[in-house]
Amino acid sequence: MRLQKYIAHSGVTSRRKAEEMILQSRVKVNGFIVKKLGTKVDPEKDLIEVDNKRIELASKKLYIMLNKPEGYVTTLKDEHNKKVVLDLIDNIKERIFPIGRLDKDTTGLLIMTNDGDLTYKLTHPSHEVWKKYLALVDGIPNHKEIQKLKKGVKIDGRLTSKAKVKMIKIYNDSSVLEISIHEGRNRQVRKMCKCIGHPIRKLKRISIGELKLNDLEIGEWRHLTEKEIKYLKTL
């Protein structure tokens, strides 16, 4: 088995992040640092360590949906003592990690798993998985500004892909937009709205593909159903 695949299957992180760990000299095989991607290991015989801690293949695959509250980061541990999403998951012995990220101030749907292969597939740029958000923004975007969001705006030096956007509610000095994107760029929805002059006050992800939060309360989590897991694996 390739080393990065072994790390992903152990529930430490996704395969892409595992590759980064290898290149950063954080992985040892039988006591020696390995920096070559694609190195083959024997799960039965070899001792694999990440950050000097032994890892083993996960015996059971877990798939969890979390309604993330504000104030939590989606890293596994935070050097600045911020609250992490793993703090919200109790009675789970297996190591799990988020598929993708939500920034600290964004709430909503987050999938967590120890299935490294699935994480790799769902986060790869070639897979166009639509993610839907509700955004409370300053002011009331006009038709022209909404069309700009739909067609793509330039953030971080390049255009975003086409988005699906519609007005949901209008208040005196703010409004709620429903925005669907299939990219995963850093703080993308926030940057898109700021680009058209309507910064986001609150942001919530409500669906990933056909997976929806529905009535899952903020801070609550549940195991995915067999039907939901099967759907994820077909994406």
Rank of each mutant, 00 (worst) to 15 (best):
R2K: 10
L3Q: 00
L3C: 00
K5T: 02
I7F: 11
R15N: 02
K17C: 03
A18I: 07
A18K: 05
E19G: 04
M21D: 08
L23R: 09
N30Y: 11
K36M: 08
T39C: 00
V41R: 10
P43E: 10
P43C: 13
E44F: 15
D46R: 06
V50A: 05
V50T: 06
D51R: 06
N52A: 12
I55A: 07
A58T: 12
K60T: 14
Y63K: 01
N67D: 04
N67F: 13
G71F: 02
T74R: 00
L76W: 11
L76K: 13
K77P: 00
K77I: 07
K77G: 04
H80W: 11
N81L: 12
D87W: 07
L88R: 04
I89H: 06
N91I: 03
K93I: 10
E94N: 14
L102P: 01
D103N: 04
D105V: 04
D105L: 11
T106E: 03
T106Y: 09
T106I: 05
T107F: 13
T107Q: 14
L109P: 04
I111K: 03
T113I: 07
G116N: 04
D117M: 12
V129L: 00
G139C: 06
G139Q: 09
P141M: 03
N142T: 07
H143C: 11
L149A: 09
I155F: 13
G157C: 08
R158I: 13
L159S: 10
T160F: 06
K162L: 10
K164G: 03
I168E: 15
K169P: 02
I170M: 08
I170R: 15
I170S: 12
Y171T: 06
Y171H: 09
Y171D: 15
Y171S: 10
N172E: 13
N172S: 13
I179L: 05
I179R: 00
I181V: 05
G184E: 00
V189D: 06
C193M: 13
I196N: 02
I196C: 07
I196H: 02
H198Q: 05
P199D: 09
R201D: 10
K202P: 01
R205Q: 01
R205G: 00
I206T: 09
L216V: 04
W221P: 03
R222A: 08
K227G: 06
K233E: 13
L235K: 05
L235T: 07
